[in-house]
């Protein structure tokens, strides 16, 4: 007897919610980025669970794509953060408010 699909989907939703909370609460750009990754992984967990319980491999294939996009996103995002730190000497989001003035 294995755990039901509902429990996997609920766990995935909870992980997504935790990541979302982190994006909204934290001020450090790096930690915000980590929470974004957490949200992506939560989505992949739901995809794998649906794929397993429906007996099709399509969800698993989409997880491949999500992993690839996440890797590309991390590379570009961290390069942007480093460039930002070079010019502004901070990565706290509440100090990066040039567009608000």
């Amino acid at each position: 007897m294995s755990p039901s699909l509902e429990s996997y989907v609920l766990l995935s939703a909870a992980l997504f919610a935790v990541g979302f909370l982190g994006v909204l609460v934290r001020r450090n750009t790096l930690v915000i980025f980590m929470c974004l990754e957490l949200m992506l992984v939560a989505a992949t967990l739901a995809l794998v669970a649906f794929s397993r319980f429906n007996g099709t491999g399509d969800g698993d294939v989409f997880v491949f794509f999500i992993l690839t996009v996440a890797a590309a996103e991390v590379a570009v995002g961290l390069a942007i953060i480093v460039a930002l730190f070079r010019t502004r000497h901070t990565i706290q989001v509440d100090r990066l408010n040039s567009l608000r003035r």
């Binding site: 294995s2 039901s4 699909l5 509902e6 989907v9 609920l10 939703a13 794929s51 397993r52 319980f53 429906n54 007996g55 099709t56 491999g57 698993d60």
Partner: peptide, 18 residues
């Protein structure tokens, strides 16, 4: 969605794709 929806699909499919 999980509790009231039509999500309940019983046991996992026998053919393990992974």
């Amino acid at each position: 969605i999980a509790v009231r929806g039509q999500l309940a699909s019983g046991p996992p499919a026998p053919g393990a794709v992974g």
